[in-house]
């Protein structure tokens, strides 16, 4: 494992810590898209089915369990916690997220790594992760008041994806010289979706202004 991959994973982990910190300390999930969080539960469960069939390392196994566990916990807080659920920005979180699932599944059937159940689900999870942030980005556009923790959460998620691209470039030249179309193209799409957000996040940070995304 190289430093970029580790930095990416740690940034991903940190984004989840920031989100859970916001939820647990402020007892609020305002500005957080339940739709995106539900998609992440599906992404992690379908990708990490290989927990039962493939062992890579203790690190990988532990991280997979953490990602599944925390994503379920976040959805639990947003749907079922009696205080937190009342702060959910329901009226603004209107992206029809379930519509993303069939195209990703069809794409996984057409372009899997191998035509087996676990490989099709793995490809599906890669494609779904690429677009899972869309409901969250839409919600941020509609939010007149984006708090610091919510902005940090989305920034860290985007940074994690950007670091994975650096990791792939590094691996390509130092390890295998193998082109990995499925994760690379999906990862590039996923990172590109953050471009607009990054622009306004960095601008607000430089000018010491409150983050606002133009609709």
């Amino acid at each position: 494992m190289n430093i970029f991959r580790l930095a990416g994973d740690m940034t991903h982990l940190l984004s989840i810590v920031v989100l859970l910190l916001k939820i647990r300390t402020t007892k609020s999930c305002a500005g957080i898209s339940l739709k995106t969080q539900e998609l992440y539960v599906i992404v992690f469960i379908t990708r990490y089915l290989d927990l039962f069939t493939r062992y890579v390392s203790f690190y990988n196994t532990a991280m997979k369990l953490v990602f599944i566990g925390t994503s379920v916990a976040i959805v639990w807080y947003m749907r079922l916690h009696k205080v937190v659920k009342q702060t959910y920005s329901r009226d603004e979180d209107t992206f029809k997220h379930y519509l993303l699932i069939p195209p990703c599944f069809i794409l996984a059937l057409l372009i899997p790594l191998e035509f087996t159940v676990t490989e099709i689900l793995w490809s599906f999870s890669i494609y779904l992760e690429a677009v899972a942030i869309l409901p969250q980005l839409l919600l941020l556009q509609r939010s007149s008041n984006i708090d610091n923790l919510t902005g940090s959460y989305v920034f860290l998620l985007g940074a994690y994806r950007a670091l994975y691209i650096v990791n792939w470039v590094y691996r390509f030249f130092t390890e295998t010289h193998k082109i990995r179309w499925i994760p690379w193209i999906s990862g590039l799409v996923q990172t590109a979706l953050y471009a607009d957000f990054f622009y306004y996040y960095i601008k607000s940070w430089k000018n010491h202004e409150k983050l606002r995304l133009p609709a």
Binding site: R5, D9, H12, D50, R54, V56, S57, N60, M63, K64, F67, L113, E114, W122, Y164, N167, E175, T176, K178, R180, I182, P183
Partner: peptide, 10 residues
């Protein structure tokens, strides 16, 4: 092989 590199990331 294919499996090893594709699936060693998270």
């Amino acid at each position: 092989g294919v499996q090893a590199i594709e699936h060693d990331e998270l």
